[in-house]
């Protein structure tokens, strides 16, 4: 009796093989053509040697380069990279704060907000190095182009995140300040800034962290920082130099990432 009930229940099991088969077909249909377009030409003739040399370079970096404190040494390049990121973030901040207020739906009307949101979206979608190449036409190659590029690209992300914070504002506090007879300036000073400050600083530090990475890449298009020397070193097969540059980059980013994580965690916990 009970046996037959169990067999009955067993026969009722959902037949999953149809959905399995379908998902396998879909995956194969997407991935297979994809794999065939990726052309693997094998290692280029010297590929393995290059790989080995870069690895050796990281283990045996060029110490004289690391300890060279002149404008040709690693410390200067790293400082320059950090300075580009720092100024870029700051200029981005100065532009994106008003932009964010203009685009926040609880501050302005829907029409104005939509216009500014669209502008921000367009700024955001351009790839970083397109701006880089454009700014080089303005300032000539060098760190200054990097600063302007990062400023512009930071605007996209900073304002987007700022808008979210502003739209989360607790308006109750402003009302209570209103009730106690504060003027607009006082309302901003005591009602809005304290609420926004920690979040804004946290976002800013996060973006600085990203900008340090971007600054190192921008060098590749000639916009200052560690990227250009890296490319030259690789083109010139100076592997110990490549090794020290990579090492410097890794250490710089790790330090800034760790500090940024620590500060942001502290800000979040008050």
């Amino acid at each position: 009796m009970s046996k037959s009930r169990i067999i009955e229940q067993y026969e009722m099991r959902p037949k999953k093989w149809v959905s399995y088969l379908l998902s396998i077909i879909v995956i194969v249909a997407i991935l297979f053509p994809a794999i065939s377009t990726i052309s693997f030409n094998g290692f280029s003739k010297s590929g393995l040697v290059v790989a080995k040399n870069i690895f050796l370079g990281i283990i045996n970096p060029d110490m004289s380069f690391i300890l060279d404190f002149s404008e040709l040494g690693l410390p200067f390049l790293l400082l320059e990279t950090a300075a580009i990121a720092f100024l870029g973030t700051l200029i981005g901040l100065i532009i994106s704060v008003p932009l964010a207020f203009l685009a926040a739906r609880n501050i302005t009307n829907k029409f104005v907000s939509n216009i500014f949101v669209t502008i921000i979206t367009i700024i955001r979608t351009f790839p970083v190095f397109v701006y880089g190449l454009m700014f080089i036409r303005v300032t000539g190659p060098g760190a200054f182009a990097g600063v302007l590029t990062l400023a512009l690209t930071s605007i996209g992300m900073l304002s987007k995140l700022f808008i979210e914070v502003i739209e989360d504002l607790d308006t109750g506090i402003i009302e209570s300040l209103d009730a106690s007879g504060c003027n607009t300036l006082q309302k901003i000073r005591f009602g809005i800034i304290p609420q926004l400050m920690t979040n804004f600083v946290s976002i800013l530090i996060y973006r600085f962290d990203i900008n340090v990475k971007n600054a190192s890449v921008l060098g590749l298009v000639g916009a200052g920082g560690i990227g250009a020397p890296l490319q030259f070193a690789m083109a010139g097969s100076k592997w110990d130099l490549v090794g020290s540059l990579l090492l410097g980059l890794i250490v710089l980013v790790l330090i800034i990432e760790t500090c940024s994580d620590k500060i942001r965690a502290k800000l979040a916990n008050g």
Binding site: S2, R5, I6, I7, Q9, Y10, R13
Partner: peptide, 13 residues
């Protein structure tokens, strides 16, 4: 396997 499923159903029973 079928045996394992049956034994699981028995446990549920």
């Amino acid at each position: 396997s079928k045996e394992e499923k049956i034994s699981a159903l028995e446990a549920l029973d």
